[in-house]
Design a binder for these strands. Structure first.
Length: 948
RNA sequence: GGGUGUAUAGCUCAGUUGGUUAGAGCGCUACAUUGACAUUGUAGAGGUCCCCGGUUCAAAUCCAGGUACACCCACCA
């Protein structure tokens, strides 16, 4: 045993202690002696994009608390750590780094770019792992998972194929949320809304006035909508009108729809199906033509006439100026509206039409007779899964019931590739891997994606012509060709179709200089043409006589170049590769995460696990709140109010940080955190340290005390009763997820009961070594899940081999209520005496004469009280009016009497209570115990006033 | 527009199924310092439990209405 320092210095011990734990192998449940049932948490994987923030630290604290509690209880505790490849987030980050280096992903090409991402992820994963350890997390690193490792990729692909086969996934041409910055689609729940000031333009629009905040989209209107009961416009409904907008001609059909608000704006809506979700729906109902106006980079396409090539804002300015010149702007109002922005980069979302993969949530699963949505709702409704706090049930149902099909393909490179291959004659092959795809395709060779659009554009500056139809446009980074290829643009598509090409047909492209064929264009859809090529500069490229020759020689299969942003299989994947783990540890016990993730992820995990495994993913969802700053503001980099958990851990110790995150937090409720609070718990940790130090230094022999020692005095009985009560309550609280309450009770027992009272008494009564050691050892166990480091360090002083981490959770012994009552009398007597001294300005060092008398306390306890209160106990009754304390009386040589306020309060209380007791209804209705207590308290109050 | 939550001491928050004279931490005031700990101890001051009704013998707690704030969902032409 070594001498303990005066104050606990966390940084001196924490890293070593963590190492000891980790090397013991006991984070792995297979190595535990435990016979209990499994308790499993899979860590919601933090993004592999950077550093741990307070939200993660809080999550880790709650999860570790549960896991350590169950491990101590003897359960087979498993906590699986992991990281998330976070497709869009990670790609965005790396792209930012590339931008600084003056390059971009297209210049690098797919392979090199992915290499860079992997490099980046590896280094940030290292950071995350280090910081997770710093928080003391007792997770099983041997089972660590990554959302992008082989197991999960396999799971994602298999799930994709299964869903495709069940008709739950389909490729379709629909309106999607498009982020021009990320150049990718987004799911509905990845779109955020921000209120902003906007202008509402009233545009003269044929016989109407149309109000809009986005005038430029009017260039692609194909309809104009009014309310069916709007008499002003009834006569136009059904007509097709030619509208002139500052010289730009459009053709619109007038439709009537109940969705239109007669009172908003002019009551007339220009319908732009390709660039507004609601307009798209209107177009579906009324069969309107869809004209795409804005391309994927946020620029106006050819359909925008003279505004072609302009970005959206520029086009708006010019178009409005032109309308003004033409006298077509009636007025401009200022309004507030919600702008849709990308959750990752805050770029305004551009809704546009595109061909993508969608999950169909309402489609019945053939073998189950239920839809994905129904599976997810039933799992919670049937009570299989419990959500804490309960009220989030409602939010869950509401969200689920309103869930609609969501787009799962993302046009980024970092992520799970969509397991789909296409042949050039329009065949679609969906298979879990290339080998399988090959089989399905009749063992034709699958190409990698050398021949994607991206590669092609970066290759050259040739002029092309197709057989039979010359294309005059240049290629390279030329946007014109994008338009041809990515389609949706009206003129080109129709011209192609008019030329007699049909869907699935391939057009071979030739080099106009050498007249040799070196590529082909494929028409996959009347609105979409896919372009593939073979780069003539690349080794091994082929040249073909004509398209038939091409097809004969190179029937190739092309992988889908998109990825799916789908890690919803996390819940069970962590055990996916090990069948025995799946049997033993699935479903997991608790999914602990922030309430902001309920929809994003928790709901989808429930849906997918129910679908794929036909089981629930977990028993309980524990939702913690958000951590805010002292003023209740969200912590963010831009506000500079963020608290770095690692810095706090270094300054105050991880234990202090953990306690400050646990105490004062309730599930689903936000919590404020600030340095003073952490400092407060640092003080507590230090208090526990010094309590231990005192016990060790005052003990003759530091040893483990196996059985509860015999209590010799009232104080002994009292502290053991309190301790047993504490064990019982904390065990119950932890089972019921009442973490904050449990922490508060430990804090109170340790500091108030043990340190302030019992330790002080032990200095007077002596001979308490066994009881103190007995309590300390078990108190450390109780505290361990909250503050693992300091408890383990103190435990080392007992010189045992076994780690604190795997000790036995104490069982509560007997609680003697009478003892607690009697001891409370003693405490109040002491407090009153101290109070009297303080009020009368008697210095603590002086010992005024005092005579004590009590109905329930023996003389030796009155002596104890006198010592603690620092008064001189005499036999003679001091000649003053006695002061009553419950069942005791104090005769003390002081002038002090009750203050006026005290007297008034007491008299008021007496009056009220007497009235209460006189009330017949109270006496007849209230339980006898309540009446008795009331009477007792009344008597005590009267004693105090009268000094009897 | 729909939903959820919060409102208790100067600040941050507890307050279980209604039943002590409503609690804690921080801060504040006064005092204390030689041995566990100043990251301390002792004591004190500090409250219209948001407002208004109702239920009840009894309401911070339950119900209805209102106010303020926060968040979520939808819409925003």
């Amino acid at each position: 045993m070594q001498e303990l320092a005066k104050a606990y210095e966390p940084t001196k011990y924490e890293d070593d202690i963590y190492k000891t734990w980790e090397e013991s192998g006991l984070f792995d449940p297979d190595k535990l002696k435990a016979k209990g049932k499994p308790f499993v948490i899979s860590m919601p994987p933090p993004n592999a994009t950077g550093i741990l923030h307070l939200g993660h630290a809080a999550a880790l604290a709650y999860e570790d608390l549960m896991v350590r509690f169950h491990r101590l209880k003897g359960d087979k505790a498993l906590w699986v750590p992991g990281t998330d490849h976070a497709a869009i987030a990670t790609q965005t980050k790396v792209e930012k780094i590339l931008a600084i280096e003056g390059t971009d992903r297209k210049k690098l090409g797919r392979e090199k770019f992915l290499g860079r991402v992997k490099e980046y992820v590896a280094s940030s994963q290292g950071t995350i792992r280090k910081q997770t350890r710093k928080m003391g997390s007792s997770c099983d690193w041997s089972r660590e998972r990554y959302t992008f490792d082989d197991g999960l990729s396999k799971a994602v692909n298999q799930a994709f194929v299964k869903m495709y086969d069940d008709g739950l996934i389909e490729r379709d041409y629909r309106i999607v949320n498009w982020c021009p910055r990320c150049a990718s689609t987004l799911a509905d729940d990845e779109v955020e809304h921000k209120e902003q000031d906007a202008k509402l333009y009233y545009i003269k629009y044929g016989p109407f006035v149309v109000a809009t905040t986005r005038p430029e989209t009017k260039l692609a209107d194909t309809g104009v909508a009014v309310h069916p009961s709007d008499r002003r416009y009834k006569k136009y409904v059904g007509q097709e009108l030619d509208i002139d907008l500052a010289g730009h001609k459009i053709k619109v059909k007038v439709i009537a729809d109940k969705e239109i608000d007669k009172r908003f704006g002019s009551g007339v809506v220009g319908v732009t199906p390709a660039h507004s979700t609601t307009d798209y729906e209107l177009a579906q109902r009324h069969d309107l033509e869809i004209i795409k106006l804005i391309d994927e980079s946020g620029h106006i396409m050819k359909t925008g006439g003279k505004y072609k090539g302009k970005n959206v804002l520029q086009a708006r300015r010019e178009f409005v100026a032109d309308l003004e010149k033409a006298g077509q702007i009636e007025k401009i109002d200022s309004i507030k509206n919600n702008l849709s922005i990308c959750y990752r980069c805050d770029t305004p979302i551009e809704p546009l039409t595109s061909e993508q993969w969608f999950v169909r949530v309402n489609k019945k699963i053939p073998s189950r007779g239920k839809s994905l949505k129904e599976l997810a709702i039933n799992a919670v409704k049937g009570g299989d899964i419990e959500i804490l706090p309960k009220r989030f049930d409602k939010t869950y149902y509401h969200w689920m019931e309103n869930l609609h099909d969501w787009c799962i393909s993302r046009q980024i490179w970092w992520g799970h590739r969509i397991p789909v291959w296409y042949t050039e004659d329009g065949e679609v092959i969906v298979a879990p891997n290339e080998t399988e795809a090959n089989k399905k395709a009749g063992n034709k060779k699958l190409t990698q994606d050398k021949d994607t659009l991206d590669t092609w554009f970066s290759s050259s500056l040739w002029t092309f012509s197709t057989l039979g139809w010359p294309i005059q446009n240049k290629i390279g980074l030329d946007k014109d060709l994008v338009k041809i290829v990515e389609s949706g643009e009206k003129t080109k598509t129709y011209r192609l179709a008019d030329k007699g090409y049909s869907i699935g047909e391939t057009i071979v492209v030739e080099n106009t200089q050498t007249k040799k064929n070196f590529g082909y264009i494929k028409i996959t859809n009347i609105q979409k043409i896919k372009f593939k090529d073979v780069d003539p500069k690349q080794k091994g490229h082929e040249e073909y006589k004509d398209k038939d020759d091409f097809k004969k020689t190179f029937k190739k299969y092309y992988p889908d170049k998109d990825i799916t942003d789908n890690t919803d299989l996390w819940a069970y994947d962590f055990v996916y590769s090990k069948k025995s783990d799946l049997d033993l540890f699935h479903p997991s016990s608790v999914m602990e995460t922030g309430y902001d993730i309920l929809f994003f992820w928790v709901a989808r995990m429930i849906m997918m696990t129910e679908y794929v495994l036909e089981t629930k993913p977990f028993d309980t969802v524990y939702l913690h709140g958000m951590i805010r700053d002292k003023d209740g503001k969200k912590m963010s980099k831009s506000l500079g109010n963020g608290i770095d958990p690692i810095k706090m851990s270094e300054k105050f110790g991880t234990d202090a940080l953990r306690l400050s995150l646990i105490i004062g937090s309730a599930p689903g409720a936000d919590m404020r955190l600030y340095e003073d609070k952490i400092a407060g718990y640092r003080n507590f940790v230090n208090k526990l340290w010094n309590i231990s130090r005192f016990i060790f230094t005052s003990a003759d022999n530091v040893k483990r005390v196996k059985k509860q020692p015999r209590a010799k005095t009232l104080a002994d009985k009292w502290i053991l009763s309190e301790f047993n009560e504490t064990i019982k309550e904390i065990s119950e609280d932890l089972e019921k997820f009442h973490f904050s309450e449990a922490g508060t009770k430990l804090y109170h027992f340790t500091w108030d009961d043990l340190a302030d009272w019992y330790l002080e008494i032990s200095k007077i009564e002596k001979d308490k070594e066994e009881i103190l050691l007995y309590i300390l050892e078990r108190l450390l166990v109780l505290c361990h899940p909250f503050i693992p480091f300091v408890t383990e360090v103190i435990w080392e002083q007992f010189g045992e081999k076994e780690l604190m981490m795997v000790k036995e959770w104490p069982k509560a012994g007997k609680v003697d209520k009478d003892v607690i009552t009697n001891f409370t009398e003693l405490k109040e007597l002491v407090v009153s005496l101290r109070n009297l001294k303080a009020e009368n300005k008697i210095p603590p060092t002086e010992f005024p004469d005092c005579n004590l008398d009590s109905k329930i306390l023996d003389k030796k306890y009155l002596e104890l009280a006198a010592k603690m209160a620092r008064v001189n106990l005499t036999d003679k009754k001091v000649n003053v009016k006695p002061i009553a304390i419950n069942s005791s009386k104090v005769f003390i040589d002081l002038t002090k009497e009750l203050s006026d306020k005290e007297k008034q309060d007491l008299e008021k209380y007496i009056k009220n209570t007497e009235a209460k007791l006189a009330n017949e209804k109270f006496v007849s209705n209230a339980p006898p115990q309540v009446i008795e207590d009331t009477k007792k308290r009344l008597a005590e109050a009267k004693n105090k006033v009268n000094g009897q």
